[in-house]
């Protein structure tokens, strides 16, 4: 299993177009990919399937929140790297 942490810094967080891009990227890989973060309101750990747009949206990741990406499978390293890269580049948008 490959695990990576990254802070979401783009304006809208994991919503709208960035959320769609995130899911599309995760779906390119065979590995199972999960995303988790601490819900700031309830201070609870929440996890979602990275290939589910509904899961990612309900996770409610806003600007400045750190997420943990966990990938497991044949291409786990590539999957985690690709997603971290996407987030670090602010989904190709202005921050």
């Amino acid at each position: 299993m490959k695990e990576a942490k990254v802070v979401v810094n783009n304006k809208v967080g994991l919503h709208a177009r960035p959320a769609a891009l995130f899911v599309q990227t995760a779906s390119k890989f065979q590995s199972e990919v999960n995303v988790s973060c601490i819900d700031p309101k309830e201070n609870k750990l929440r996890t979602a399937n990275a290939k589910s747009i509904l899961g990612i949206l309900t996770l409610g990741v806003f600007q400045g929140i750190e997420i943990t990406i966990k990938a497991e499978g044949a291409d786990e390293c590539e999957a985690a790297d690709a997603l971290v890269e996407l987030v670090k580049k602010n989904f190709g948008e202005e921050a």
């Binding site: 769609a20 899911v23 599309q24 779906s27 979602a48 399937n49 290939k51 589910s52 747009i53 509904l54 899961g55």
Partner: peptide, 11 residues
């Protein structure tokens, strides 16, 4: 967006 929902593994 509708297509992504239709593809959603959780749903």
């Amino acid at each position: 967006a509708h297509k992504m929902i239709l593809d959603d593994p959780e749903l």
